[in-house]
Simulated scan of single mutants.
Amino acid sequence: MLKLALLFLVISIIAGIFGFGGLSAATAGIAKILFFIAIVIFLIFLILGLMAGKAIF
């Protein structure tokens, strides 16, 4: 997921350099959304991992 966010960020920067403002803004928005989704998934797995580590059998 972070690889896709980084890819869209690079596409956005390249499009901005060449003057494609609309495409640059769209890909930057997609990169931002993918980044925040990746952060949320990371936090969910972190919390689940911490809860599983404290389980008493």
Rank of each mutant, 00 (worst) to 15 (best):
L2V: 07
L2K: 08
L2P: 08
L2D: 08
L4E: 15
L4K: 08
L4G: 11
L4I: 07
L4S: 13
A5Q: 01
L6T: 13
L6N: 07
L6G: 01
L7W: 11
L7V: 07
L9R: 15
V10Y: 05
I13P: 02
I13M: 03
I14E: 08
I14N: 04
I14R: 05
I14P: 00
A15H: 03
G16Y: 00
G16A: 07
F20S: 12
G21C: 00
G21D: 13
G22N: 07
L23S: 02
L23Q: 09
S24H: 02
S24D: 05
A26P: 01
A26D: 03
A26F: 02
A26G: 03
T27M: 10
T27F: 15
I30W: 02
A31T: 01
K32H: 09
K32Y: 10
K32P: 00
I33D: 09
L34E: 09
L34Y: 04
F36E: 08
F36P: 03
I37A: 09
I39C: 07
I39L: 15
V40R: 12
V40F: 05
I41Y: 06
I41H: 09
F42P: 00
F42K: 12
L43G: 01
I44C: 03
I44L: 15
F45V: 10
F45M: 09
L46E: 08
I47D: 01
I47K: 05
L48F: 08
L48N: 03
G49A: 12
A52E: 10
G53A: 15
G53R: 11
K54P: 03
K54L: 15
A55W: 01
F57G: 09
F57T: 11
F57W: 11
